[in-house]
Design a protein around this nucleic acid. Structure first.
Length: 562
DNA sequence: CACGGGTGCGCG
DNA sequence: AAAGCGCGCACCCGTG
């Protein structure tokens, strides 16, 4: 059963109840005052079977519900599902895919323009004004039609359900927040920089700047300016072509040590210093703005707060509440395992049976050392052409021909300008106009060698993107299934409890999750994490025997895990 | 003064 | 060891 929510006025919501066959008119259709919505949803969630809520955008509809203490089990996030169905090769030729660009394609932009400050907007966002967005019911019907007419309705249904679950989780993560000790963070900063300065650089950084200026005999040097710094280095006889740390690290010169130290410290201060603490941590919680589906591959993005770049250096400030624990879990070698499943490569799957896939590759005899196995796998998935990684490719291809063939074919398709598709049906965007123009110019009768070189470079670049897309996008699908399963299992550990009174997800990082749980349920939460990973593997790859081991550490602080 | 591209570095 | 995928963010600097 579905209940479709539509804004039907500034203060009114229309709720239409429809069955699994979405074509007949709604069995029930009612208009509610917005103030009645939370109670209505709460009541429906208490009945069996629970409905699947169908709405335009989970951030708009779900955040106020959560704020009112109401959780939902399932939804359809029409905006996210629309984006998938528009682009998927599975739905090519359906009415939805063929329709001209419409409001469902631009909804995000409209919201962003109306509410540029997403940080505060989350809880203030209103449902789209009537007329701004066409009927959710109509859109839902068109989406169902597209799925039914697609080449693989089963996989697409799973993808849409997982994507929608992700949308709910994104809102819940923001609502719960990551338990974060501002005090510990402040202690760390104070230890590194001294007391917080009222303005300007902390004394520690100022001293390093003085040391660097003296060492390079450049009294006015601004070490934050790469061109300025590069000139000063070269004047001092240090022949580097950039100011990147890894390049500087190879130079022997007394100025290098303070310079590298300055770079490391100033980076930490700029990205996660006191200013970051002030804007993003409040009441013991870090609340970043997650954007499910924000990356072309279906990975999540973040807007503000930099949640997906939380440096290892500060993870000690992520601490469980008293009487609570963190379950920190990550999927071991997720992407190579995904590749094994995608390609049906039995040899690679068996290399990954048990714990460490890279050790398994060594045991298979393809390479001698774990580090080689890792660099070779990454090279295969990213399209390395040179260096150690490039040299190892033939050996990898000999031992794992199916896996390597799959990524090679994805790369060739991209080079031809074709789209590629993930396990469950997310397709890559086609290359843009300038890409096509460059290919056209290279094959024209009057093309120059430069035209051809440029076209070839662009084609190879795009091939590396599509090569990686099939793996990264499928891994993102696995992660969504993992989290969706986990969310259900955690909810079952404490039926009826409010989100933050029971074990709940507080962090997600591509192949890693953190659960915040009362101590008594920590072991059960850790088991749920592991079981959910196995279920995700079955959802994506059915009976194909590829393992997805996850480590699940029960800890007080994020820094204690691995 | 705002904006956009480039650089560098944090994460997976 | 430092190229090969996907990001976000701070900062610099040139341009309008």
């Amino acid at each position: 059963m579905h209940i479709v929510l539509d804004a039907s006025g500034p203060d009114a919501v229309q709720a239409s109840t429809i069955g699994d066959d979405v074509s007949p008119p709604p069995a029930d259709r009612r208009v509610l005052a917005r103030s009645e919505l939370a109670a209505f949803v709460r009541a429906r969630e208490a009945e069996e079977p629970r409905p699947r809520w169908v709405w335009s955008d989970s951030r708009v509809w779900y955040a106020p519900l959560l704020a009112a203490g109401v959780r939902v089990e399932r939804c359809v996030d029409l905006r996210l599902c629309h984006a998938i169905l528009r682009a998927s090769s599975f739905t090519a030729g359906t009415a939805l895919a063929a329709a001209p660009v419409g409001p469902w394609d631009t909804a995000v932009t409209i919201e962003q323009e109306a509410h540029p400050d997403a940080h505060t907007a989350l809880f203030e966002l209103d449902a789209p004004a009537p007329g701004a967005t066409p009927s959710a019911l109509d859109e839902f019907r068109q989406q169902q039609e597209a799925v039914a007419a697609s080449s693989d309705p089963g996989r697409l249904r799973l993808l849409l359900a997982a994507e929608s679950a992700g949308a709910l989780i994104g809102v819940e993560l923001r609502h719960a927040g990551l338990p974060y000790s501002a005090e510990r963070h402040d202690d760390l900063l104070t230890e590194l920089f001294g007391a917080r300065p009222a303005y300007g650089r902390p004394a520690v950084l100022e001293a390093l700047v003085a040391e660097i200026r003296a060492g390079l005999e450049a009294p006015d040097l601004n070490p934050d300016s790469p061109p300025d710094l590069l000139r000063a280095l070269q004047r001092a006889g240090i022949m580097v072509t950039s100011t990147r740390s890894w390049e500087l690290r190879r130079i022997e010169h007394p100025v290098i040590a303070p310079l590298l130290r300055y770079k490391k410290l100033s980076r930490l201060l700029a990205a996660n210093g006191w200013a970051w603490l002030d804007s993003w941590v409040r009441d013991g919680r870090f609340r970043p703005d997650y954007v499910p589906g924000g990356v072309v591959t279906g990975r999540w993005a973040t807007r503000g707060g930099g949640a997906l770049q939380l440096p290892k250096q500060v993870r000690g400030a992520v601490v469980a509440d008293p009487g609570w624990k963190l379950v920190v879990a990550d999927a071991a070698q997720l992407e190579p395992r995904i590749l094994a499943g995608l390609s049906g490569d039995q040899a690679m799957a068996s290399a990954g049976r048990g714990k460490d896939l890279y050790e398994g590759i060594v045991a298979s005899g393809a390479v001698e050392e774990r580090a080689q196995a890792k660099v070779a796998m990454l090279g295969a998935m990213y399209g390395a052409t040179s260096g150690e990684s490039g040299r190892l490719m033939p050996r990898l291809a000999r031992s794992f021909p199916r896996a390597v063939r799959l990524v090679e074919e994805a790369a060739r398709a991209g080079e031809r300008g074709e789209i590629v598709t993930s396990r469950l049906g997310r397709s890559s965007p086609p290359p843009g106009g300038s890409w096509r123009a460059a290919q056209g110019a290279a094959s024209a009768s009057d093309s120059t060698a430069a035209d051809e070189r440029r076209a070839r470079t662009l084609a190879r670049d795009w091939g590396r993107f599509t090569r990686n897309f099939v793996v990264q996008a499928s891994a993102a699908e696995w992660a969504l299934c993992w989290m969706a399963e986990l969310r259900n299992r955690l909810a079952a550990l404490a039926p009826g409890a409010e989100l933050t009174d029971a074990p709940h997800l507080v962090y997600f990082l591509h192949d890693e999750v953190i659960v915040h749980t009362p101590e008594a349920l920590a072991a059960a939460s850790a088991e749920a994490v592991v079981a959910a990973a196995q279920q995700a593997g079955r959802l994506l790859f059915g009976g194909f025997p590829v393992d997805f081991p996850v480590t699940a550490a029960v800890v007080d602080s994020y820094a204690e895990a691995k």
